[in-house]
């Protein structure tokens, strides 16, 4: 029995990765939920928006690295982030002007907008592959670890090491800052309040003189920022590959739906619910259980409930369970 080592092993392999992944999912789900709440459709192009924002960030990062600009121990990508956001915002505003605006004016059914977003998804996906190619791209630099497994072992004398990657630390800190700004914006500023009013009751908001075009524009700007930050953080933490961003669509939507579509708080909770379930169910518990149990009971197998390739199944099963028992999600979402 060795609880200390068990806890360290658990944090190293489950808690820390899940918190980082959960923050990334939460940021992605916030974007989906905002679009659903204000523009009233499920945006299938969101994963590819994330990829586009991250791609612009990567290109600027490379330019900065070539010019010798660096951010000390932190990744240069953080400096490039604002450029990525501007790029994604420009793309989204152009898409809105040339594509979505027409259907909004027509008051098209939400499902038509979903199909339209499928077309946008194709274009963005093609655009990203066209510009940066379909392969893995590395762009992280700076210090790799805040604390490495070996340092931790030397410091504490425990058998288990605890490694915290810089990218994980940055992910959590950035996510907290971004979410704080977002909630401040939505709850305290005039524009934010008008956005919430528009989401709650469109007709009433229009009657009280809220300019819908302005609300829509701000929504896209915020979504661009959220998507780029989420995409860049995911790329720093894992790696950048256009196809994985497309696949992120499923856990992101699962997070948003589990939390309740249209509810920002729900999106954050949903992101962590999905991330924690994915990581705990696909983690091989042998090590942690080995520390926790008396030696005679030590498990022989890996004690892995499902192979990591089935992580989609996890987010999906949670999605179905929540929908069957709480059809509007954990936090009351809306239905269009």
């Amino acid at each position: 029995m060795d609880f200390l080592n068990a806890i360290v092993a658990l944090s190293n392999f489950v808690l820390i990765p899940a918190i980082a992944y959960g923050s990334q999912l939460a940021l992605g789900a916030l974007g989906v939920t905002l679009i659903y709440g204000i523009l009233r459709f499920s945006n299938f192009a969101h994963g590819d928006t994330m990829a586009f924002g991250a791609m612009v960030t990567i290109l600027v990062t490379w330019a900065m690295q070539a010019a010798g600009i660096s951010f000390g121990p932190l990744p240069t990508a953080l400096l490039a982030l604002p450029f990525g956001i501007i790029g994604a915002a420009a793309l989204l505003l152009l898409t809105d002007k040339f594509v979505y605006q027409f259907y909004r004016r027509q008051k098209a059914a939400p499902v038509i907008l979903v199909i339209v977003s499928m077309g946008v998804m194709f274009i963005m996906n093609g655009l990203v592959r066209f510009i940066i190619g379909p392969d893995d791209q590395r762009f992280g630099d700076g210090a790799r670890f805040i604390i490495s497994a070996r340092d931790f072992r030397e410091m504490t004398g425990l058998r288990e090491g605890l490694a915290i990657k810089t990218s994980q630390g940055i992910t959590v800190i950035t996510a907290v800052i971004v979410v704080a700004i977002l909630f401040w914006f939505l709850n305290r500023t005039r524009t934010g309040k008008s956005m919430r009013a528009f989401s709650d009751n469109e007709d009433l908001a229009l009657l009280s003189g809220i300019n819908p075009d302005r609300v829509v524009m701000y929504t896209w700007l915020i979504v661009a920022a959220l998507a780029t930050v989420a995409g860049t953080l995911y790329g720093l933490d894992k790696s950048f590959k256009p196809f994985t961003y497309f696949q992120l669509l499923l856990p992101i939507f699962a997070s948003a739906i589990v939390g309740g579509l249209g509810s920002p708080l729900g999106a954050i909770v949903g992101g962590f619910v999905i991330a924690f379930s994915e990581v705990t169910i696909t983690y091989a518990w042998k090590k942690v259980l080995g520390y926790m149990m008396p030696e005679s009971l030590e498990p022989d197998g890996l004690v892995q409930l499902l192979s990591t390739d089935y992580k989609f199944a996890v987010s999906f099963v949670i999605l179905i369970i929540v929908l069957l028992f709480r059809p509007t999600g954990l936090f009351k979402g809306k239905a269009v």
Partner: peptide
């Protein structure tokens, strides 16, 4: 991919 998206839109 670009072309398919464009055609659909």
């Amino acid at each position: 991919l670009l072309t398919m998206g464009l055609i659909l839109l």
